[in-house]
Nucleic acid binder design. Structure first.
Lengths: 221, 221
DNA sequence: TGCATTTGTTCAAACGATTGATTAAAATTT
DNA sequence: AAATTTTAATCAATCGTTTGAACAAATGCA
């Protein structure tokens, strides 16, 4: 044994261990074919373990979903937190931070990698309104949106918690999210086979230009 | 016997009949809890008929899904077709048509009514990438997006089938779609209980303002 | 017209297959 | 040796589908 003194600490983000393997399998399968359509046997097969391990580690299939939700909040929280939360000194500074966050989010959503399993899982819980939604809202959606509203308000000299700013932030976020949700439609219409680095760049630049357009239109009014 | 000479003609769009009742049940249940999570017994219960009717009319559960998809394309096609497709004489005329279409789409997506069952069903098929996606893409998404690109290009003096316009149209559409997909998050964050007429107006005005911002920023460049 | 037959549709009942969950024994680690 | 973790086998419940009998309306033949 080299490291990993406590199983809990090791499973917090390590790819090893039955528990972690099951969470990864849950994120992938729940996200790509819904909770109900995924059987415990499928989960066990993908995690290369036995069916009973699910009940042992998580109490059942529903428990595994809860654990997956917590893992999503944890990982996505890290992504967003990577953008420095410096106090904004000016409207320009706020706009710069918004640019940085939008770029990071677009990269996370569109550019593949870790988001390939996290985002589908998240979207499914969001639309299905499952029991996980509570965790996601308080742990991720609400604080993130609030922070963005603060920056948006500072960049456009509006009330950060006013309805107008809130809706504008949702609009900007929605654009980025759609390129993930409607990926099958977008790629097909664009004549792409899938999202690659080049495609991600094209989309990101469009989103940044749109962000400036939205910020600018309010600024002028 | 008073009317309804042919059962086929009556079932084409009438709310009566077992076949129509099953399609309605399918649109609702498939959309709100996914295809896999919906049992044939649930469908029969909601349609107030027997389980065997599903196999009789549609050959099975999958057949019912196909019929539901066709119904969605048919009904949503009618909604979009209601906006006059007059040849655009100027950039202003194109912009006016884009306004009208955005208002109609926002009203359809956000303002409740017939969309309450159609949109969830559609979004689910879109994200799940089910066998229905083909029907939806060629019957609805592609022609609609192409038409919008034509208007967008005319309004901004860009190549209607260029990548830039295509992505901008997707962005504008994505904003509207998100307010449906993320409805649970939005309403909660806004302090609303649900989308009502007032909320729909607020969102629609935001979307229209955003549309003008996006069109304007390109126009100036 | 009168009766038998066919047709379209719905019904309760049952089918085999698969579901999530449970159990006790075996294996592994400490 | 003791505790933790994984395994194979089994449980009742539910899944989508099929079956054959009902029923009403239309049709064929007399």
């Amino acid at each position: 044994m080299s490291a990993s003194p406590s199983p809990l600490a090791a499973n917090r983000s390590a790819p090893e261990g039955t528990r972690a393997a099951l969470i990864e399998a849950g994120l992938h399968l729940f996200g790509h074919q819904s909770f109900a359509a995924t059987s415990t046997r499928q989960l066990a097969l993908r995690a290369q373990t036995n069916i009973a391990s699910i009940a042992y580690h998580f109490g059942g299939k529903a428990g595994l979903r809860d654990a997956c939700a917590a893992e999503v909040v944890r990982q996505m929280g890290l992504v967003i937190a990577q953008v420095a939360d410096a106090p904004v000194a000016s409207a320009q500074a706020a706009r710069a931070q918004l640019h940085a966050i939008m770029r990071r989010m677009a990269g996370f959503l569109i550019g593949g990698g870790q988001a390939d399993d996290l985002v589908p899982f998240l979207l499914r819980e969001m639309t299905e309104g499952g029991p996980t939604l509570e965790v996601f809202y308080h742990g991720l959606a609400e604080p993130t949106h609030r922070r963005l509203c603060g920056l948006w308000g500072a960049a456009t000299l509006q009330d950060p918690e006013g309805d107008a700013v809130k809706l504008q932030v949702f609009s900007a976020l929605g654009q980025a999210l759609y390129f993930r949700i409607g990926a099958r439609i977008v790629t097909r219409r664009m004549g792409w086979t899938a999202y690659g680095p080049d495609q991600a760049d094209r989309i990101t630049e469009t989103l940044i230009a749109n962000l400036d357009a939205l910020l600018g239109s309010v600024e002028r009014s």
